[in-house]
Simulated scan of single mutants.
Amino acid sequence: MADVAEKAGVSRALVSIVFRNQPGASEETRQRVLRVADEIGYQPDSAARLLARGRSRTLGVMFTVHQTFQADLVEGIYAEAERLGDEVLLSATAPGRGEAKAVEALLSHRCEAVILLGTHADAAALDVLGKRTVTVSVGRRVPHAHVDSVHTAEGKGVRQAMEYLVELGHRRIVHIDGGRGPGSAERRRAYRAAMRRHGLDSEIRVIPGDHTEQSGIETGRLLLAERENGASLPTAVLAGNDRCAMGLLMALARAGVEVPRDLSVIGYDDSHLSHLMPIGLTTKDAMLMAEHAVRFAVERLEDPERAPREAVLDPKLVVRGTSGPVRAVQG
Score class of each variant (00 low, 15 high):
G256V: 13
G98N: 05
E82T: 12
H66L: 13
S46K: 12
A37R: 05
A225M: 13
P325T: 04
G216R: 06
A5W: 00
K7F: 06
R35L: 04
M246Q: 13
G76P: 04
E154I: 03
R309N: 09
G76F: 10
R30F: 06
I279K: 00
Y268E: 02
V15Y: 01
A47T: 13
V326C: 09
E302W: 02
T212W: 08
E167A: 15
A125E: 12
E203G: 05
P260H: 10
L165W: 08
G179P: 06
I204V: 15
V142L: 13
D38I: 01
P278Q: 05
F19K: 05
L224V: 12
D269G: 10
H211M: 14
V138L: 10
H151W: 11
G85Q: 02
R20N: 15
G60Q: 06
D210Q: 08
E218M: 13
G139I: 07
R12Q: 14
V312P: 00
H175P: 03
R221A: 14
R309I: 07
V237M: 11
L222S: 13
A81R: 04
H175W: 05
N229T: 13
D3S: 11
R97E: 09
G256Y: 13
E6T: 11
I217N: 09
G157Y: 06
G76K: 06
E226G: 07
A81I: 06
P325I: 06
I204S: 05
H211K: 07
V319P: 00
L126T: 11
V319C: 00
R12Y: 02
A125G: 01
A231Y: 07
Y78A: 10
R32I: 05
R35Y: 03
T64A: 14
R140W: 00
A52F: 02
D148M: 08
D210Y: 08
H151Y: 15
E82N: 12
Q31A: 14
D86T: 00
P23K: 02
E80Y: 02
V150N: 05
E213K: 14
R327F: 07
G155D: 09
R97W: 09
E218A: 13
R227T: 11
H198W: 09
M162K: 11
P23V: 08
V257R: 07
L117N: 10
R306V: 03
G178A: 04
E27Q: 15
R20W: 07
E28M: 06
G199I: 12
L89S: 03
A145T: 08
I204A: 05
L263T: 05
A236P: 03
V4I: 15
I115R: 10
K156T: 15
T93Q: 08
D86N: 09
E39N: 12
L200S: 10
E99Y: 06
L126C: 11
G139D: 01
V158A: 13
R295L: 01
L249S: 05
R30S: 11
